[in-house]
Design a protein around this nucleic acid. Structure first.
Lengths: 320, 320
DNA sequence: ACCATTCCAGAAATCGATTTCACCGTCAAC
DNA sequence: GTTGACGGTGAAATCGATTTCTGGAATGGT
C-alpha cells in the first residue's frame, strides 16, 4: 500500500532516487541505505501495475492450454515454467478448456495486461492470434498451431507417430486396427489419424468406419471405444491418439475383460500415472516437458528482440 | 495499441465519453454509436493495466498451488475457475512447487499486481501471508492452511480420514499397518498420520518405525514403500496419505509382485486415472473440485466486502 | 587553476484508463 | 417566468511507477 512517494519522503529523497535504488542504478551509498530502510519500515512493495503501464511490458508470460487436467499439458507447463523462472519471468496459466470463446478471452487479457508474450496450445485450427500479431506481441504455438498464421511453433511429428504406432500393431499380427482420435478441427488429431491411415493402407485397405473422433478426454475414450467394440465386426486392435483417451479406452477394455493383448492397443503419449508397466501396450512417448522448454526458449528469444523469420521446431518423439 | 484517446478523437468526443460507453454509463445514442465504430476500426482493446492502476484492483484472482502436476490440485483449480469465470474473474495459476521461496514470490506478485484476491494451498505450515493481510487483500486457504493467521479456510477432516482408512485395513485383518505420509511441516501430512496413530493405537501399540515422511510425490511413494518393505519385519498393509504417493507405492508393489490384497493398501485421495477399479484398495475420496468451488465462493464474498470474522469450512469426505 | 568529464539527484512528463467537477441545455413544476 | 432537477459532456486530476532533462558537485588531466 505504501508508494514510492511515501518511501521517498521518509528517506528524504526524490521518488526518482527510490526508483533508481530498486533498479540497481547509481545512487550514493548513504541515500541507498536510507531508502532501503524506509522501504522496509513501510513494507513497501512496488506496484507492478504502475511499472507495467510505464514500461509497456510486464515480466509475465501467458501459457494458454486447452485442458489443465491433462498431465501432458501440466508437464509441458513445468517445462515452460522452469525456463521462464530462470529468466526472471513469471508464468500465468490459462485454461481454455478447449473452448474458443474462453481462449479468445484469455488472449485479449494477455494483450490488455501487456504481457511479454504468449505460448499457445490452441483449442483448434482456427484459433485467432491476429490481435497479438497486430500488436506485435510474441506468440509461440506449441503442440498444435492455429492455421493461417506464420508464427513460431514447436510440435512433434504426429503423422509419423501415428504411423509407427499403427505399424507396431500390424507387426503384432492384428489385422483390423481401429483409430480413436481427437476433434476434427484439431491438427494433432487429424495428423495422427493420417498416420494411422498411412500404415493401414500400406497393409491393405482403409476402413473409415474404424475411425472415431472424440474429445481428447477420458470420457471421449470411453465412448469411442464402446462404439468400436459394439460394431458387428469390431476391430481387433486400436490406436488411440492421446493419453487420456487411452485411459478411457483401457477402462472400457478392463470392464469388458478384454485387456491388451486380448485386444491390441497403441497410444500416442505416455499413459499418466500408470501403475503397471503396460508391456502389452505400445506407447509413443511424447516429450511434454521438452516441448514446453523449447517453446519458452523460442518465446524468450523473441521477447529479447530476435527478429528472424518464424521457425518451426519438430521434436523427435523417440519411439519405443 | 490504440488508446482511448485515439478512439476519442476519431469519434469526435472526449476520452471520458469513450470510457463511459465501455462502462455502460449514460451516453447519447449517437455518440455511443460513433465511439463503437471508431473502436472497431482501430481494433481498440482497453488497457487493463491502466484500468487497474486507476481502480486499484483487477478482475483477476491468483490460485497458488504446490504441485501443478498433481491431478488433485488441477481438479481443485477447475472448481475455482468455474466459479470465478461465472463471476467475471479470471484465474491465474501459480505453481509454488512446494517451495517457500517461489510461493513468497508469487504472493508478492499478487500484491504488486493488485489482484482481487488469493486462494492459497500453502507449501507448508509456515507460509507467510502477512503481506496480503497487511494490505487488506482477501486470502482463502484451501486444503492446507498456514499457521498463525486467522483467515478463511476450506479443508477436509484429515485426521478422521486417516483414522477411517487405517481402520478399514485393520478390519480387513491386517495387523502391522505402515503409514506413508507427506512432509512433516505440512498440516495435511501430520493430521493424516495422526489419524493413522489413532486407529492403530485403538487396536494395540503404535510402532513409529512404520511411519515414513515423504514428499507427496510419486517418487516419495517409491522410496518410502521400498524402505517399509525392506524392514526386517515389514508391515503387512500400508496407509498412504496422498494420491501420488499411492501411485508410487503401487508401482513398487507391482514390481515386487505383491499387489493388493497381498499387501493391504489404503489411500487418502482418489487414484488418478486408474484403469482398473481397484477393489482391493481402500480409497478415501477427496472432493477436490468442491474444495475449489467453496474456496472461490468464500473469496468472492470477501472481495464483495463481506466482513464477518474468518470462517473455516470443513468438507465431508464421504467415505467409501 | 581551469576545463572537461562523470556522477548524483530532483522536477516534471509520461503511460492509459477512470472519475470528479463544473457547465450547459432541457424539461417539469409551481 | 422563474426555479429546480437531471442527463449529457468535456477538462483535468488521479493512480504509482519510470525516465528524460537539467543542473550542481566531484573528479581528473594538463
Amino acid at each position: 500500500m505504501a508508494t514510492i512517494y511515501e518511501v521517498a519522503s521518509m528517506a528524504g529523497v526524490s521518488p526518482a532516487t527510490v526508483s533508481r535504488v530498486f533498479n540497481g542504478q547509481n545512487v550514493s551509498a548513504d541515500k541507498a541505505r536510507r531508502v532501503r530502510k524506509a522501504a522496509k519500515a513501510l513494507s513497501f512493495t512496488p506496484s507492478r501495475v504502475a511499472r507495467t503501464l510505464r514500461m509497456r511490458s510486464s515480466q509475465v508470460i501467458a501459457l494458454v492450454i486447452p485442458d489443465i487436467e491433462n498431465p501432458f499439458f501440466t508437464s509441458m507447463a513445468r517445462g515452460v515454467e522452469d525456463v521462464a523462472q530462470a529468466a526472471g519471468y513469471s508464468v500465468v496459466l490459462c485454461n481454455s478448456d478447449e473452448d474458443h470463446g474462453k481462449e479468445a478471452r484469455y488472449l485479449d487479457i494477455a494483450v490488455g495486461a501487456d504481457m511479454a508474450g504468449v505460448i499457445l496450445a490452441a483449442a483448434g485450427d482456427n484459433s485467432d492470434v491476429s490481435g497479438l500479431i497486430a500488436r506485435n506481441r510474441p506468440v509461440v504455438a506449441v503442440d498444435r498451431s492455429p492455421h493461417g498464421f506464420d508464427i513460431d511453433a514447436v510440435t512433434v511429428d504426429n503423422r509419423a507417430g501415428g504411423r509407427e504406432a499403427t505399424r507396431a500393431l500390424l507387426d503384432q499380427g492384428f489385422t483390423r486396427i481401429g483409430c480413436v482420435t481427437g476433434p476434427g478441427d484439431v491438427e494433432t488429431a487429424t495428423e495422427r489419424a493420417d498416420g494411422w491411415r498411412d500404415a493401414v493402407r500400406a497393409a491393405g485397405a482403409v476402413d473409415e468406419r474404424y475411425l472415431r473422433f472424440a474429445d481428447f478426454r477420458v470420457d471421449g475414450g470411453h465412448k469411442a471405444m464402446r462404439e468400436l467394440l459394439d460394431m458387428p465386426e469390431p476391430p481387433d486392435a486400436v490406436f488411440v491418439a492421446n493419453n487420456l483417451m487411452g485411459v478411457g479406452a483401457l477402462q472400457v477394455l478392463s470392464q469388458r475383460g478384454a485387456m491388451p493383448p486380448a485386444v491390441g492397443m497403441a497410444v500416442f503419449g505416455d499413459l499418466p500415472f500408470a501403475v503397471m508397466a503396460p508391456m502389452a501396450i505400445t506407447v509413443i512417448p511424447l516429450p511434454a516437458r521438452h516441448l514446453g522448454v523449447t517453446a519458452a526458449k523460442l518465446l524468450l528469444d523473441r521477447i529479447n528482440g530476435d527478429d528472424q523469420p518464424p521457425r518451426t521446431v519438430v521434436l523427435r518423439n523417440h519411439a519405443s
